[in-house]
Design a protein around this nucleic acid. Structure first.
Length: 574
RNA sequence: CGGGACGUGGCGCAGUUUGGUAGCGCGCAGCGUUCGGGACGCUGAGGUCGUGGGUUCAAAUCCCGCCGUCCCGACCA
């Protein structure tokens, strides 16, 4: 492509209040433009990158047996009502009406539609299947932000596995897991797989792929010794064992004015240290009151509460609600004697005794609390949020926390969609089984932004070769000089005939402008062609990543450039 | 949804406190000089000041409503 024929409007200035560096660079470089909050146009340069990302994703999913199709994004709302996700997704689901007042929604993912298609299958012989599409998704995000990182309209590769049994699901899940690792490697990313919560998708197991970046919104916990990696929403850690001594009797004691665990611990260090206290939290999970009990020095991880209650929404109870439920204000709450209400106790409290907790009467507490003896516990579950520096529950290593961007997520779904949409097949014995589904997503444009977040310098983007809008940029230093331009054109034709994706900057601009633009748009290899080089028979090659320079002999420049590219591509795919 | 800020040529902004009919930088067009790291001179084009209403002789500026955008939080596959 010739720069003078291309649409590459680079800018000196970027949106000043934008937070994410990838957003600034992609706007300045002429890759994207914002239309409205969370809605972006892909300009020619951006579209080239996007298509290269899509191509890599498509090839890898094809390679594990995926069959590409394309489904509607406009869905009758009734389908989402049937799956129950209409309510589950709440405000995040775009809704609209057609001319006949029919309720429609725009798809966020398409388990429902794929499930409906799967209902046409009738025999185990039809399985397994991997179906996928690369298509637009809509989410009415409460707060789009950070450019392409969180938008309302985007492209997702969503694939779905259909299997007769859980071992089939496991196999499809592993295939995707491996394919995703290859995809992110080929995209030039260092994204890692971490254990994750399934959230509103439901299902049993899920793994996220996270690109480390401060622009990310997920906190990841990793062990410095082993390969334990988990989203904070899911992460666990090992705790030092505590000795509670001999079990004592339950006893009420007055605690006037003591409304925090800290105050209680300071006033009664012998009986109510934070580790020996119970933190009592009252939540509403889908309008159902839940008591969540944690050790006094621990914090609740709300996603864990959601997972434990299978609720789609949780919120702390208001003070008046708490008073109505338990008869006391926060600060004097406890689980002793609570009946007829879900009581979830964190695993760190299991088997503990001689603890202190509120008595559900203002200014009174219990001591000598033995959870198993004195409370009606619905379940012991993991509710605690891991803290930085705690010990790994696998090998005792030290846990570190860092932020990252979720670029992919794979789920073992189970049978909920197939049951709802009638996707059953018969096994060899003739009995009918719901198809077991898995679902697997990659956000294409978010991936692009994550690449930029991870790969840029002070002068601009450093695209990995595999997704760069062009592989080689020829910067013509004096394109008004006919001899120089002719030499550059010969190189351009030579590279193009060798199949190299080449952009030639043939603008009549000063060199500084061209160099600055070259670095901004981040093409991996730049060949500088100027009168000086034509004179001496050498072109200068600059590798964008690191800005290393070397010389190319003029007459063989195209060939040697091509072999350098092949070498680089081999490193990526090998 | 709560808090904060902003909306003025294509882009980035000043002007608003103190009302008098719009300005700067970049970019763009023409001419000339220059040009291997964001050149310079001259000339020029380009703006319903987000929008609706109000106050006023007069509104980018003051008042009210609405819309939009960004940031923090809540939220979020």
């Amino acid at each position: 492509m010739r720069w003078t024929e291309a649409h590459i409007p680079t800018l000196r200035d970027a949106p000043a209040d934008a937070e994410a560096i990838s957003h600034k660079l992609l706007v300045r470089g002429g890759f994207i433009r914002q239309l409205s909050a969370g809605s972006y146009s892909m300009l020619p340069l951006g579209q080239r990158v996007r298509l290269k990302v899509i191509d890599i994703v498509r090839k890898e999913i094809d390679a594990i047996g995926g069959q590409e199709m394309i489904l509607p994004t406009l869905h009758p709302a009734e389908i989402w009502e049937r799956s129950g996700r209409d309510g589950l997704m709440g405000e995040n689901l775009f809704r609209l009406q057609d001319r006949k007042d029919g309720d429609l929604v725009l798809g966020m993912t398409e388990e429902e539609i794929f499930g409906m298609l799967a209902s046409e299958l009738s025999s185990y012989r039809d399985l397994p299947q991997i179906w996928y599409q690369i298509h637009t998704k809509f989410r009415d995000e409460p707060r789009p932000k950070s450019g392409l990182l969180r938008v309302r309209e985007f492209t997702m590769k969503d694939s779905y596995t259909l299997d007769i049994d859980s071992s089939g699901l496991d196999a499809g899940f592993v295939k995707h897991h491996e394919a995703y690792k290859r995809i992110f490697k080929r995209l030039g990313m260092s994204a890692v797989d971490v254990q994750a919560s399934s959230g509103a998708m439901g299902g049993t197991e899920s793994i996220e792929f996270i690109q480390r970046s401060d622009a990310g919104e997920d906190w990841i916990v990793t062990c410095d010794k082993c390969d334990y990696r988990a989203n904070l929403e899911k992460a666990t850690s090992a705790l030092e064992p505590l000795d509670d001594g001999e079990p004592a009797d339950l006893e009420r004691f007055a605690t006037p004015g003591l409304r925090t665990i800290k105050a209680l611990a300071e006033a009664h260090p012998d009986i109510a240290g934070a580790e020996k206290s119970i933190k009592t939290l009252v939540y509403f999970a889908d309008d159902e009151p839940v008591l969540a009990l944690l050790r006094g020095d621990h914090d609740l991880q709300e996603q864990k509460l959601l997972d434990a209650t299978a609720a789609s929404e949780a919120r702390p109870a208001k003070v008046e609600e708490i008073r109505e439920l338990l008869g006391a204000d926060p600060g004097s709450l406890g689980g002793v004697g609570v009946e007829g209400m879900t009581v979830l106790v964190d695993l760190a409290l299991e088997g503990r005794h001689n603890l202190a907790t509120g008595a559900n009467e203002d200014d009174w507490h219990y001591k000598g609390v033995n959870i198993a003896r004195d409370m009606t516990v619905t379940a012991y579950v993991d509710l605690r949020e891991v803290k930085n520096g705690e010990s790994c529950s696998v090998d005792g290593g030290t846990l570190e926390m860092w932020k990252g961007i979720e670029v992919g997520h794979i789920f073992k779904l189970g049978t909920m969609y197939s049951e709802e949409f009638g996707a059953y097949v018969q096994d060899p014995d003739g009995s009918s089984h719901p198809i077991i589904m898995g679902s697997y997503g990659i956000g294409i444009e978010r991936g692009m932004a994550a690449i930029v977040e991870a790969s840029h310098d002070e002068n601009g983007i450093v695209w990995p070769l595999s997704v760069a809008p062009y592989e080689v940029l020829i910067t013509v230093v004096r394109s008004d000089d006919s001899e120089t331009l002719a030499a550059a054109e010969r190189l351009y034709d030579g590279l193009r005939s060798l199949g190299v994706d080449t952009l030639i900057d043939d603008r009549v601009e000063r060199p500084g402008v061209k160099f600055a633009d070259a670095e901004l748009i981040g093409i991996p290899f730049r060949v500088t062609v100027g009168p000086r080089g034509v004179e001496s028979g050498m072109f200068e090659l600059t590798v964008r990543d690191g800005m290393h320079k070397e010389e190319l002999a003029l007459e063989s420049a195209a060939i040697s450039m091509k072999s350098k590219l092949d070498e680089a591509l081999e490193i990526i795919s090998g």
